[in-house]
């Protein structure tokens, strides 16, 4: 098992190196001059040149790259010019916020999409199948910022059920001591139940927004995969041996149908993690997506490079996790190790 993980990690090294090179080059060819941006509109050319040399931007590209890699090896992603903080600290602070939101959104989506997809496949052509199709189509058709705003409008403005969409925790509550960075877990660890409830209240609308969006791929994939498996010979055997339909669908069909669904889940998760900028904006969520976009607008190299690199590493880890999950679900995959 460990050897399998090791081997898998080794194969990802080239792609990580590729990501490092490409992000470095991309950030340099982007239009916009960091030094000019930070010197301000009234700065003299001399002041701009000074800042440029301070940032090391006047050196040739290979040299800049060498110093970037040297710092990277030491775990230093550089300093953000906009926040004035080390990028590693910024990311460490913001990644859990994004991860918590995305994970909750995905769990919500799964809890609806998986049963719906299974039902749609089992009752193919029935009203539930059509309902599934409508929900899925509507979910992807609505842009997330629109769903988000709509939810805020209804549940905060009209009904007043949810708190103001301003960040992860009510401003009057103090954050629990940081252990995992996931507020839901940290508040529980601290035994601070009012804060836990407040965190949930803040989380629920953005999570639902994300969930609605990711409902479609999961439902459709579950349905298609279930349909294929339900037509398989071994399901016929299970039926012919008189197994109850719960057993046939739950144990025989569903577990076999899980493989493509797990792949889809991984893809949806990694996509949402970096791409839910709009949701983070609508709910003032201090996530990593909005952080990266702000840095990009400011031509702030270090956070962008740090963000892309973090995403690449997360993607690799996620894929590894999915592969391990595969092995857990399907004994045939285990053989390859």
């Amino acid at each position: 098992m460990l050897r399998l993980i090791g081997a898998r990690l080794l194969t990802t090294i080239p792609s990580i190196i590729g990501v490092i090179i490409v992000t470095f080059l991309l950030t340099r060819v982007l239009p916009g001059d960091t030094a000019a941006y930070f010197a301000g509109p009234t700065a003299s050319p001399k002041a701009i040149a000074e800042i440029r040399s301070k940032l090391g931007l006047d050196q040739p590209l290979p040299q800049q790259f060498a110093s970037y890699v040297a710092a990277l090896v030491k775990g230093d992603l550089g300093q953000s010019l906009t926040t004035g903080q080390p990028v590693t600290r910024d990311i460490a602070a913001r990644l859990p916020a994004s991860a918590e939101l995305t994970l909750c959104g995905l769990l919500l989506a799964m809890s609806v999409a998986l049963p719906l997809g299974v039902l749609a496949a089992v009752r193919q052509g029935s009203w539930i199948d059509h309902l599934c199709r409508i929900i899925a189509t509507a979910g992807v058709s609505l842009p997330v910022f629109f769903t988000g705003l709509l939810l805020v409008f209804v549940f905060y403005f009209i009904l007043g059920w949810s708190p103001a969409p301003l960040g992860r925790l009510d401003v009057f509550l103090s954050e629990p001591p940081r252990v995992t960075g996931f507020l839901l877990i940290d508040t529980l660890l601290a035994g601070d139940f009012p804060a836990f409830r407040a965190a949930i209240a803040q989380l629920i609308l953005p999570a639902v927004t994300l969930g609605i969006f990711s409902l479609a791929p999961i439902t459709r994939m579950t349905r298609a995969s279930m349909l294929a498996v339900l037509g398989a010979d071994f399901v016929r055997t299970a039926r012919a041996s008189g197994l109850s339909s719960g057993k046939v669908i739950g144990v025989y069909a569903f577990r076999n149908a899980m493989l493509p669904v797990v792949t889809t889940l991984g893809m949806v998760f990694s996509f949402l993690l970096g791409a839910n900028v709009l949701v983070e904006k609508v709910f003032a969520w201090p996530g990593i997506g909005s952080y990266a976009v702000e840095a990009l607008i400011a031509s702030d190299y270090a956070p962008i490079q740090g963000f892309v690199l973090t995403m690449a590493v997360m993607y690799v880890m996620l894929n590894l996790l999915i592969d391990l999950l595969y092995g857990f679900i399907d004994p045939r995959v285990r053989l390859e190790g």
């Binding site: 398989a232 010979d233 071994f234 016929r236 055997t237 299970a238 012919a240 144990v251 025989y252 577990r255 076999n256 679900i329 399907d330 004994p331 045939r332």
Partner: peptide, 12 residues
């Protein structure tokens, strides 16, 4: 059934 390998649940 015909094709016995397919007639058995592959992951059980």
């Amino acid at each position: 059934f015909q094709n016995p390998r397919a007639a058995l649940n592959p992951i059980r």
